[in-house]
């Protein structure tokens, strides 16, 4: 009898899915090399013209924009998620822990549209935030959050926090509490324990959380689309614009290829920086 009796029956479906997925990606690559025939959904012969077009400032700007927004989102997500993850892991009160888990995880499962719509209600000119600030008297006229980068980041950070919290909480839960006790026993105040012991020990989690959120934000679509309202253009929005407004599928495909390349390139770059960072903290 075979030593691996389930190999073939278990392998075939997985391979099938992989092949279908690769075929879909290959379609994009194929389209990106085709000539666009205006006014028609059919495409022409092979060409590299599409790739030449992306040097136009508007697309170049979309790429930079995507990069900057993703960096900012990952940074703020990290800052806001850490205290929640810490509280979640270290609280001894069961109901607090359950509440923290439910409140911080629910947004993950409500979907991009529900969350983006909710933020439109909060950030709109007559939205919740402006009404509140006007009522309190902090501002005298509505602040524009919609159609700004700040507004997009505010929404994206909340969108990204559940995943970051899960990653950080896992990292924190893997530190033996003896390290914190030992530091306190040697005279470290609570804040010092956090900065000198807890944060360095969770550095791998911090780095991987940052990278995951960065990659995730690069693929955000609904939030920049609706809250950015065309004024904050990320690659995703540029592709949609080309595909569905201009019906220029070949160029949309080219932008998708660029999106893929820049996603993988920036991930590789961040991994590189992360490795260097980890080595430095290791030598310390």
């Amino acid at each position: 009898m075979s030593k691996r009796p389930f190999l073939i029956p278990f392998l075939v479906p997985a391979i099938l899915v992989a092949v279908i997925f690769l075929a879909a990606l290959a379609e994009i690559l194929q389209y990106s090399l085709r000539e666009f025939i205006p006014g028609s959904l059919d495409v022409g012969g092979f060409t590299l013209d599409n790739f030449a077009r992306i040097y136009r400032p508007v697309y170049f700007k979309a790429v930079i924009n995507t990069f900057v927004l993703s960096l900012a989102t990952a940074f703020f997500t990290l800052i806001l998620s850490y205290p929640i993850a810490f509280a979640l892991v270290r609280t001894k009160v069961e109901w607090v822990r359950t509440l923290l888990i439910l409140l911080s995880i629910t947004p993950l499962f409500t979907g991009e549209i529900v969350r983006t719509y909710a933020w439109m209600l909060v950030l709109g000119t007559n939205g919740f935030l402006n009404t509140m600030l006007l009522d309190i008297g902090v501002i005298s006229e509505p602040v524009t959050f919609m159609y700004t980068r700040a507004g997009v980041v505010i929404a994206l950070v909340q969108f990204a926090m559940p995943v970051m919290i899960i990653i950080l909480a896992t990292a924190i839960s893997h530190i033996n509490t003896d390290y914190e006790k030992a530091a306190a026993n040697l005279g470290a105040r609570p804040w010092t324990v956090i900065t000198r012991v807890v944060i360095p020990l969770t550095m791998p989690g911090i780095i991987s959380g940052f990278i995951v959120i960065f990659a995730w934000t690069m693929s955000a679509f609904a939030t920049p689309q609706l809250i950015g309202g065309g004024k904050v253009l990320m690659i995703s929005n540029a592709i949609y614009l080309q595909g569905f407004s201009a019906l220029n599928f070949p160029f949309a495909a080219t932008l998708s290829v660029i999106a893929l390349i820049s996603a993988f390139a920036s991930l590789a770059l961040m991994k590189l920086i992360a490795n260097r960072l980890e080595r430095q903290t290791a030598i310390h």
């Binding site: 690069m218 693929s219 995703s236 592709i239 949609y240 998708s256 999106a259 893929l260 996603a263």
Partner: peptide, 11 residues
Amino acid sequence: IIPHFTTGFGF
């Protein structure tokens, strides 16, 4: 890692 919109576009 691959953006959902890319996957969607491919399909």
